[in-house]
Design a protein around this nucleic acid. Structure first.
Length: 576
RNA sequence: GCCCCCGUAGCUCAGUGGAUAGAGCAUCCCCCUCCUAAGGGGAGGGUCACACGUUCGAUUCGUGUCGGGGGCACCA
């Protein structure tokens, strides 16, 4: 809802043609409407004015419900108010027609010149088309994947990687200064378990052995770790390097090696997925650098803790939790949310006024506790900081049946399995193209199908088709920026222009809503418009003016397809 | 039992206070003398889980019920 004070003059409503952008156009129409509203309802101090893009082209290019919202105070029929508004509306070179429809909607039809302007805009901006400066260079951290080094990444991590990485790309495209961070625990009980499992394999034990640890890791990859350790191989992960000691009794050496080995495996998978991190943070460092102790100390000082039953409690109920939580256990150890709070204090102190944690939905219970701990510290952290994006479970299907087992990992499907089987582009697309908060069924058969069933190829093909036409033409696309666009009048052309003009707001919206899937849907629609157009009309026609206008249009579409695919981390091939 | 997410066409999913609820797949029909048919055009298919409420108007907001999933430890 846009609330605008009614102090506008006709002068400010004038916009030079070369400046017309979808957003400026919207502002232009808003100003025209405000002027009309002032004439029709002079007593109205301020107005909430909604100008939207109708879903159907039959309802014009823009529509407003202004007459309906005025109906109550003016005590008049909305349609009558709408008539008066239209009569009072200043004329504009960008508005071809207005009409009243439905219960009192006013529909605006733009002039062709207003619609054509988007092409010049796109051709001028190129790779920057669709980007904006909402973030104004402010720093944001996106923490995602954050898998512990106890095994290969599974599909769930893949979804986190795809969604988190797309979020980072979206935020970058909308003017934020993005840091990608990966957090993991290299010292907890699960790592002890890992160490023990590797040691058993070093000694030649198998999970079938009666002495195999009850909760030991059973996957084949443990054998690989053990073999490599015994062979004294060197492994280098993105954030650490270790050589295997070859001594099956040296638990510390096994632990360090296993962690490095599995981190390297994860790094390889992530690299194959085209996902990269700026920083790796260790839970163990929070302890060794005294940050956990400091946080506990600060929480005690803040007065929100108490002792009971030989344990130290945090009064999280003061901050919206349904019961208080133990911080320090009877045995002296801390519960898991304490380092989590310490970690987020650290993020805050590093200057991230905005932090987005992309996690699996199974971690949702930590949100309240972490935020409560941060509020209890009373160090100026806003309520509701940090943001969370939680993704739901992924089910993998093949041949109509659920796939559960990976030979390598044992009990789950790995990200690597998917990349190997269906390819990088399709895997990324399928994992990012759904709303994070709905459960996802990953259909391997569909994802690997090189047919029109597969939305990835459908979109990429639209891009490749344009490239192919441009190659056939053989001209210099930079000359298209000055093409005469007036021949573009066909419904297919106007549809495509309309779709193109929606790209910037789609990007903006996707970033604001933290919803990368909106980009995927936009691209599918855009590709559909392009394919329809392609099928209906030939671009390389004899009429030079028509040809250049069409080439300018599809070149603009190519930029939008390319930039959109970039945001998803999916390639835009020139040939298929 | 409590908390979170979801419930939209046969299937997979968009939409989310407004005008006849959309797409892809599947089903049926049609289109390559033409820049890649990895394409296009058309048909059928829906009480937007259900009930009540707020509103001029609810698939969208609120409450409740039912279904699916996940979380509910002095585990991480």
């Amino acid at each position: 809802m846009l609330v605008i004070a009614m102090q506008l003059s006709l002068e400010t409503a004038k916009i030079a043609l070369f400046q017309v952008t979808p957003i400026a156009l919207k502002a232009h129409l808003t100003e025209l409407l405000m002027l009309a509203a002032k004439a029709v309802a002079p007593d109205q101090a301020d107005l909430s004015l909604l100008l939207e893009r109708p879903k159907s082209a039959e309802h014009g290019d823009f529509a407003t419900n202004l007459a309906m919202t005025l109906a109550r105070t003016l005590k008049q029929n909305p349609r009558v108010i709408a008539e008066n508004l239209i009569r009072a509306l200043p004329t504009s070179p960008y508005v071809a027609k207005t009409e009243i429809a439905g219960a009192g909607f006013i529909n605006f039809y733009l002039s062709p010149a207003a619609k054509h302007a988007v092409i010049e805009r796109i051709l001028a901006q190129g790779a920057a088309w669709g980007h904006c400066n909402d973030g104004q260079g402010r720093r944001v951290q996106v923490e995602f994947v954050s898998a512990n080094p106890t095994g290969p990444l599974h599909v769930g991590h893949g979804r986190g990687a795809a969604v988190g990485d797309c979020l980072a790309r979206l935020l970058g495209a909308t003017g934020w200064n993005v840091t990608r961070e990966f957090y993991y625990n290299d010292a907890g009980a699960q790592i002890d378990n890992l160490t023990l499992s590797v040691q058993c394999r070093c000694k030649g034990l198998t999970p079938e052995d009666p002495t195999w640890p009850e909760n030991g890791y059973r996957g084949d990859y443990i054998t690989d770790v053990a073999r490599s350790y015994m062979a004294q191989e060197a492994v280098a992960a993105d954030d650490r390097q270790v050589r295997g000691a070859g001594d099956p009794e040296d638990m510390a050496a096994i632990r360090a090696f296993a962690v490095a080995y599995l981190r390297r495996e994860q790094d390889l998978d992530l690299r194959a997925f085209d996902v990269h991190f700026d920083i790796y943070s260790l839970e163990s460092a929070l302890y060794s650098e005294g940050k956990v102790e400091q946080t506990v100390h600060d929480l005690v000082s803040s007065g929100h803790t108490y002792e009971q039953d030989d344990a130290l409690w945090l009064r999280t109920t003061e901050f919206g939790d349904d019961k208080d939580r133990v911080m320090k256990k009877r045995d002296g150890g801390y519960t898991y949310f304490v380092p989590d709070v310490a970690y987020h204090v650290d993020k805050w102190q590093r200057g991230f006024e905005r932090v987005i944690n992309e996690q699996g939905a199974d971690h949702h219970s930590t949100i309240t506790r972490v935020r409560a701990g941060l509020q209890a510290l009373d160090i100026g952290i806003p309520q509701g900081w940090p943001d969370y994006v939680l993704h739901q479970m992924v089910t993998v299907m093949r041949g109509g049946e659920e796939v559960k087992i990976s030979k390598r990992a044992g009990s789950y499907v790995t990200l690597r399995d998917l990349i190997d089987e269906v390819g990088l582009d399709a895997t990324r697309y399928f994992l990012a193209a759904r709303r994070a908060d709905s459960q996802l069924i990953f259909d391997i058969d569909l994802a690997r199908a090189h047919t029109n069933d597969n939305p990835v190829y459908y979109i990429q093909y639209a891009h490749a088709r344009i490239c192919s036409v441009l190659a056939e033409w053989g001209g210099d696309t930079t000359t298209l920026a000055t093409a005469d666009l007036s021949p573009l009048q066909l419904p297919h052309e106007l549809n495509l222009l309309q779709r193109l003009s929606e790209f910037p707001e789609t990007v903006q919206n996707a970033a604001r809503e933290l919803s990368p899937h909106l980009i995927a849907y936009y691209l599918k629609d855009l590709a559909g418009d392009l394919h329809s157009y392609y099928n209906a009309e030939k671009f390389l026609v004899d009429d030079e003016t028509v040809k250049l206008a069409r080439l300018a249009l599809v070149t603009a579409a190519r930029h939008a397809l390319y930039n959109g695919l970039q945001l998803l981390g999916v390639s835009a091939p020139q040939k298929m």
